[in-house]
Each structure stands twice: as C-alpha cells, then as structure tokens.
Amino acid sequence: MKTRMLSLAGLLLAGPALADPDDDTLVINGEIEIVTKAPAPAHLEDVFDTIISGWHYRNDETQAIEADDFENPGMLGVEAARDDWFEVAGTGEESCASCHGEPEEMAGVRPVYPKWNEDAGEVRTLAMQVNDCRTSRMGAEPWKYAGDEMTDMVALISSVSRGMPVDVAIDGPAQSTWEAGRDIYYTRYGRLELACANCHEDNNGSMIRADHLSQGQINGFPTYRLKNAKLNAVQSRFKGCIRDTMAETFEPGSPELVALELYVASRGNGLSVEGPSVRN
C-alpha cells in the first residue's frame, strides 16, 4: 500500500523500446523495390500510423540474405515448386502449366489472397485454391495444407508478385470472415492469456527475452527461418504463436486460421509482397 504513487516511476523506467525497427531499405536483386513501411490502412488507423514489415526488425545480416535470390535459401523451395508447376499429375494428365502457362502469369494473384470465392461461397487462401486445382481440375491428391510441397508452391506464386502491394478485400462477402479473424486476433488464449495484439500491436519493438517483437505482418510469407532452416507457411507460424501462449492450438487449414490469415493480411494492406522472406 505504502508508495503506490511511486509505482508510476517504475513504469516510466521501462522507457521507450530499446530496439526500434531500423530505417534500411530493401531492394531485391538490385531491382525489385519492396515497400516495407506504409501508411496504415483505414481500418487500422486507430492502432498504427505506419505498418512495418518484419524485415525491419531483423539484424543486418539476416536482412541482407533476403536482398539477393542467390543467398536466399527460400528460393530453393521456389525452384522445387517450379518443377512441380510443370509436372503432369493426377487423372486429368495435366499440370498447373496446362491451364496457367508460366508461373510468371500468376503475378498479381498473391496480393489479393485470401479472397472470397463466389462459386464455393467461402474465403479461400492460396493453399486452398492450389488444392482445389489439384483435386477438382487435375484429379490429383491434395497436398498437406502446410506441408513442404504446398509451402514451396505458395512461395513460387508469391515470388512472382514481389514488390506489388498487398490488397486483400475485407468488405462484401468476405466481411464476416474478416470479423471472425479480428475476434481471434484480440482473444487472449491459453494459460498465459495472451492475444496476438498483446505482442504484435501493443509491444512491437520490445524484446520478449531474446526475440525482437515485430508487428507480426504476413506480407513476407512463406518465410525461410534460419532457426528451423526451412520455409514456413503462415498458418504454421500462427499455430506456433498460439502454442506459445500455453493454449490448445488450431490446425493449419482450420476455419479459424483461414479467418485469421485474412484479417492479418489486411493489416498489411499497402506493404509489398515479399515472400519468400528471410527471418530468424
């Protein structure tokens, strides 16, 4: 009871974040200019002035790896997916290329996903769309939702849109899914009772032990993480963050994580597509 007034001093001692995002600029292969900071989209204006790619929160060495495709190990996944792209599979004797031509023709697709699909009457992630092509058009087996083949393919489709601004729709038929995702973002899960917003909205720029908290943007996905030395699907990252709150997680591909992906993507509307990015 004695010195409650003084406790303010303690709070002030915490001071400004010790490690703010840096001011470097990202140009990939000396030619693809990446917008890594942008004005917050209208729906986020009360929260942030500026939205910031996770790239800014990584150290110079990690940042440099992403700036050069020959250095970026995520590009090995992109190359593997290029083979899959042209490979005939399933009973239809077709490949992705039979319908879509070169992978480069997918430029402009990544920025608008997750996206409402009128025929299916649902919001679809890129992974859902890829599996729909495989099963209903090619007569092939679906890939595991966040498995290597799928994540590599999403990386390929992302890579040809690098530099384009993320622009997912949040109104119209997608709105209710978007709202469900927003509810999840602000729910304090698990025995530690932490929401996405506790770490990535209220405390980005702070350190949680050795980790420098970013805004948790997903414009860079799939992400090659030096920590596990592989490409990581966005919903695997979500699952990991929820697990770290001592919670029962959601599975990749579940309606909850699909809704969350749409919502978190929309928080990055205006940043460039950056995947496959490199993080630690």
């Binding site: 304090r188 899960y189 699952k239 697990r243 001592m246 919670a247 029962e248």
Partner: peptide
C-alpha cells in the same frame, strides 16, 4: 477462466 487452455507448450488441450 482460460480460453483454450493447453497442456504446457505442446499445443494440445489441457
């Protein structure tokens, strides 16, 4: 009072 309490950091339900 928890939402989806987990079994430690396994990601499974408690």
């Amino acid at each position: 009072g928890y939402v989806r309490p987990g079994d430690g950091f396994t990601g499974e339900a408690a």
